[in-house]
Write a protein that binds this DNA or RNA. Structure first.
Lengths: 128, 128
DNA sequence: CTTGACCTTCCAGTGGCTGGAAGCCCCAGG
DNA sequence: CCTGGGGCTTCCAGCCACTGGAAGGTCAAG
């Protein structure tokens, strides 16, 4: 399969696929004309990466996960640890966003939002 | 005040302050030796920017908010709209993270996390 | 006079792509 | 045989909001 076909099949931009090759996540062979030739294993790896990325894992996490995926002698605790760390980072982000959200929502409530210049949002930002 | 003093006072890296000048968010005058000289108004603007950034507004939002802040004839609805859009984006992010979180937490629960290779996390990523 | 803390500019890198230019490859239609 | 259009290639630049570091000027203390 050529890159375009893979891109359509996985719903992944061709640019992204080239980028993944660039940073060494996969190494599809080339046809005589220089085109990348994706075997089923390459497509499968790509699908794995796409799903891991969709779960929010960083590229480096994905690299580690992929190598564990391909290592029949892995210990599942290694995978679990990566996932737990990721979960913890997600929880931090959610907590941070919730805190922003609550401050922001309060300020918005206090603002009349009309043609007059008085604005508690700006006042708050201005004197913290 | 020199940049270092401002940086300490606002707890903002000097690099960031220079960057803000670079992108035109403020324009502190210079001393004869070329050092930036921050007047109270400059420090005040910087503090405004720092708080807006801490609330998660983008730099472009900050630019707009600052210009509204300095415009005595503003209509508060313009400020409110920026804040509401930002709130909506935050809500989207929270929702997205919550969805990731729930998938991930489920996978983690299913994984033994021991020395054996069997791993539902990898299985899931591998076959979607 | 030296030391060390400060300041300056400029260039490069972060993450994870994304856009675009320039140019080759291939196939169908006229 | 030529042309057009799509797909493929590489490479360079840009996104956001900084951050790090090099090379060099400035200043106050000892």
């Amino acid at each position: 399969m050529n890159i375009g076909a893979v891109a359509r099949r996985l719903n992944l931009p061709a640019k992204t696929i080239r980028y993944y090759e660039d940073i060494g996540l996969l190494r599809p062979p080339r046809d005589e004309n220089g085109y990348r030739h994706f075997r089923e294993t390459d497509v499968h790896k790509l699908a794995f990466l796409a799903r891991a990325r969709a779960l929010g894992f960083t590229i480096e996490d994905c690299r580690a996960l992929l190598s564990l995926y391909e290592d029949a002698g892995r210990e599942s605790v290694r995978v679990k640890r990566i996932a737990e760390d990721h979960l913890a980072r997600i929880d931090e982000k959610i907590e941070h966003l919730r805190s922003l959200r609550s401050t922001l929502a309060h300020l918005i409530e206090c603002c009349a939002g009309d043609h007059r210049p008085d604005c508690p949002i700006l006042e708050d930002l201005g004197q913290g």
